[in-house]
Design a binder for these strands. Structure first.
Lengths: 348, 348
DNA sequence: GGCAAAACCCAAAGCGCTTTGGACGAATTC
DNA sequence: GAATTCGTCCAAAGCGCTTTGGGTTTTGCC
């Protein structure tokens, strides 16, 4: 059933039917009602493609999610982020399309998205410190919102980020205040902007407490469980091991916990962990006392907000770039405790 | 830059340019080359919406991923599945669109998808035993492939599934052969077809080894880490606790491991675990010796195959329904060992 | 050289919708 | 009562592409 048929059935013109359904005032309430009823009696829904062509608006938002060429991974945070965003899109009549793209083909992917006209706006994930996509997209004139920031990019653009620096500084100070002097940082890949900021927070925290950083205690890698395990293992097995870890995600923290327990030590007593926690649905860390002491910031909520920001940009007139910085909560759980006696000693 | 402009630039008709770009034979190699060069010099890409409207093919596949109304969760397997599928789509020029849908609105979502004409085919996730979507989609005439099966549905339809029953039977027998007599089943939600099949496999395995099942050892729930923890905890704290668990996913197994270790027991010595393993990218369980003994079947690979199946259905002529059953590998890792002495005793 | 067959190209219709620019009668105004 | 406005509705153009149904040259062949 299409517009033409529906119009013919009703003995009306396409114009009138279209207007009736789209809420234009030039049609009487009586006919509007009649049209509406006929429409859902015949299960009519306007053809998206035709509508998009006619209006020039695709009513679709694109998410391009990067996948590294070496090991085909897709970060589990995307699932939660997108599910948060999708809710907003759905409520506003937008569809969502995904491009899973190898990092090499990224630029091409954006160009294609822009010129094929299949999306009205896009969300940029996982920005690097001087991410070239921002310049590219501004250049292409395609509305976009960045989830995260690109520290070295000076162009104005819309972003939504978590205050990673402050969070990690706070966590570091928290650990130091518990008596920990050697704190390992198990970070995400440090070409990504958020990882840089976290490291900065960690360093700032140490320095605020007058501790010197030790390069041996700082590692970066892809945020998998086994990375958490091996990174923590290496540090624990070294001479002068850390008594605490600052970890970049719950998944990694689970690996670190495994390393700790495999060595016969107790989490929260012999070794402490604070982790960033995206509040992923399948890893809810929220029993009455959370398993991990964590810097919590819901990535789902971030998706929600980013979507709203993007839509306001897409549908509203040329709004100036918007920014939003989400603060993190430090939730104290069972993975932190005072530094074990006898190991503590002052440094730097 | 659109077709008309490009044609004018070249001094050719739209027809010729269109044909040149789409590889039709009615155009000379010389002009084809000229057109191609001009096209990518001007960064021309045909407008998807217009093309879709003209051809009647959206060149888009839909994935509707369900999210339960109570707790907004999106299963991490979707990310890997879709990333596997996306690769196939991309290679064939298809886009992918996502509908994240509350279970209540499912039917409406499919109807909309069908009548809006925005997709050429869809993948059905997480089927229940008598999933109504299969009848609905057959009725709507929209090509689809089910990831999993719906045991009670008699209609013919295309599916791709993992041999869950056989896998779980094999794992059960493996555990029994190690001397375990009380084996806990920590299953996924049992309105889902795969969970039912797994339970059946578990029961078949017990019965093949002449053991009677104990209802107290069988639980089902949403596959989260904390579910794994609490389910395992409950069984371990009961009188006559199990010496082994059969678990539905690595995420759940991690929770179960936590329960075991929290009780001062050692995984693989005091208590064994075999888990189903979807080979999710962030939980690769594949060190030289896998952490968990597991029934492994890559969900990414499943996505790959399902996509191929769907595309052959969408683009090929009216092919009859296809089926594919993937077998699982039992990888022996460090989470299983002989049943501890003194606990073993014969049952049933 | 003449003719049919290829080879190459084009104008125009059509995909299903929105939107412009009226048309027409009824209600309002003076 | 004539002029205006208002309320309703419609025909047709247009969004950017594909595709049908020709046209016009070239080419091959006797």
């Amino acid at each position: 059933m299409n517009l033409k048929e529906l119009a013919r059935t009703l003995g009306l013109s396409q114009t009138t039917v279209s207007r009736a359904l789209n809420g234009y005032p030039e049609v009487s309430d009586a006919t509007r009602l009649r049209v509406r009823q006929a429409a859902d009696r015949h299960n009519y829904r306007p053809n998206t493609r035709a509508k998009a062509l006619a209006t020039g608006r695709a009513m679709t938002i694109g998410h391009v999610i990067p996948t590294s060429t070496r090991h085909e991974m897709v970060n589990p945070v995307f699932a939660d982020f997108i599910s948060g965003a999708a809710e907003v899109y759905a409520n506003n009549g937008y569809d969502i399309t995904l491009s899973v793209v190898r990092d090499a083909d990224e630029e091409e992917a954006y160009r294609t998205l822009a010129s094929k006209g299949s999306v009205d706006g896009i969300v940029v994930h996982a920005p690097t410190t001087d991410d070239p996509r921002i310049a590219l997209l501004t250049d292409l004139g395609l509305p976009f919102v960045v989830h995260g920031r690109a520290s070295n990019v000076t162009l104005p653009y819309s972003w939504l980020d978590v205050n990673n620096r402050r969070g990690f500084q706070r966590a570091t100070e928290f650990l130091v205040d518990l008596g920990h002097r050697r704190i390992g940082l198990i970070n995400g890949l440090e070409h990504l902007d958020f990882a840089i900021r976290r490291r900065k927070g960690y360093l700032d925290g140490l320095s605020a407490r007058r501790l010197a950083p030790d390069p041996d205690l700082m590692v970066a890698g892809e945020m998998t469980e086994s990375y958490g395990f091996s990174a923590a293992s290496a540090q624990l097995d070294a001479a002068d091991p850390p008594t605490a870890f600052l970890v970049s995600s719950v998944v990694v923290a689970i690996g670190a916990r495994r390393a700790i327990e495999e060595r016969g030590m107790a989490l929260g007593r012999d070794v402490s962990i604070i982790t960033h926690d995206d509040d992923l649905s399948y890893f809810r860390n929220d029993e009455t006392v959370p398993i991990f002491t964590a810097l919590r910031s819901s990535v789902r909520e971030a998706g929600h907000r980013a979507a709203n920001m993007l839509l306001s940009q897409v549908s509203g007139s040329k709004a100036s770039p918007q920014h939003e910085l989400m603060e993190v909560d430090l939730m104290v759980g069972r993975s932190t405790g005072p530094a074990p006696l006898g190991v503590t000693r002052r440094q730097g």
